[in-house]
Design a protein around this nucleic acid. Structure first.
Lengths: 199, 199
DNA sequence: GTCTATAGGCAGATAGAC
DNA sequence: GTCTATCTGCCTATAGAC
């Protein structure tokens, strides 16, 4: 169905979240203001308060949407890519894509500012990491079952080290503006923690 | 030499840096104010401006002192610990000690806020990572020469993956308040990237 | 070195009109 | 939904006295 002439397109609320997401990924939750978002939207901060009562609620909505979209991407990977090894590579590429735009994982930034976040945001941040670890654990276990991967310990432990290793690789690579730095670390990390089983 | 009776002890400047360091490690550079430091010191913000003209200069001094102290610790490790494998473990323990106090690596936090930092601080952050990578590279190469370590690639590449892997392990472990999470990741990281050579 | 006093700006937020 | 107007508070910073 076509949009009406006076339809502003994507809901203001969604566009606000898009802008806020980018701002947090680039500058951190304490590094932007309502005025930054309102300015880019072409509305006033008062109007923005209509959509989000406060910055805490905005932040909460931000993580929730991010986690849902991330889960959808993980589901897509499972649907489109059969092998465990290739799924891991696709997973790392989700992060590389962010970095290519100069962004950082939303929950990675928020983890750095954790102590300053309102409680509801804090819980959502750890839930995101839990979600990632659970997905990776399942991929690694599938790789073991297929016989395509070798691990030196429990899958859950490897999953944790991979998640944190990739977050750290992004954290350090971004100041240098070198996506290659991230990729090299990611490859080495995956190859040494979940190496391909010999044929 | 004994201190005079009216000597306030450690210079106010140094005490200010101590407090600022802790605040940044816990809350980030955009998560504290001059008032936080002045309040804890029992002086006014105006007095604090006497020691540091602005927040940018304070931040710059902070990183510089942090990097110098860190370098001193690395030198101590080299002086006190002979084997490459044990040196790596001691290196990881430097980070674990921070985490035990609920702190994060100063430059790790600053990397997350990188885009919002004044230029002189930005350069100092990457210099810190460079310093760490250089030290680790040299330790890894010594381990290769001794025949006590096995690497799957160049020492410099492994060093980068170790630095970023440890930073990430801290980043993710802190929200959970679990030092064990960091330690498990650190052990796994070191064991798979710089494994002990078989006897 | 530290103070009082104060400036000027920006933050998040609210009331009420349209 | 968006506006104008306004509030209160905090922030960094400066001038000038002690």
């Amino acid at each position: 169905m076509a949009r009406r002439a006076n339809d502003s397109g994507p809901e203001t609320r969604e566009r606000a979240l898009d802008i806020a997401e980018e701002l947090v990924q680039r500058r951190g939750f304490n590094g932007f203001s309502y005025a930054d978002i309102a300015g880019r939207l072409g509305i006033t901060t008062a109007s923005l308060h209509y959509h989000f009562p406060g910055k805490a609620e905005l932040g909460r909505s931000l993580i929730q949407r991010y986690a849902e979209r991330f889960a959808a991407r993980l589901a897509e990977i499972e649907a489109a890519i059969p092998g465990a090894r290739d799924r891991l590579e696709a997973y790392a590429n989700l992060y590389a894509a962010l970095l290519r735009e100069g962004r950082f994982c939303l929950c990675g930034v928020l983890a750095a500012e954790y102590e300053t976040l309102p409680a509801p945001m804090q819980e959502a941040v750890t839930a995101f990491f839990d979600q990632n670890e659970a997905w990776l654990t399942q991929v690694l276990e599938a790789g073991l079952a297929e016989g395509t991967l070798q691990l030196s310990g429990p899958a859950a432990a490897a999953a944790r080290t991979i998640v944190s290793g990739l977050e750290g690789a992004m954290l350090v690579a971004r100041p240098y503006g070198e996506v290659e730095r991230f990729k090299a670390a990611a490859v080495q990390l995956l190859e040494s923690l979940a190496r391909a089983a010999p044929v």
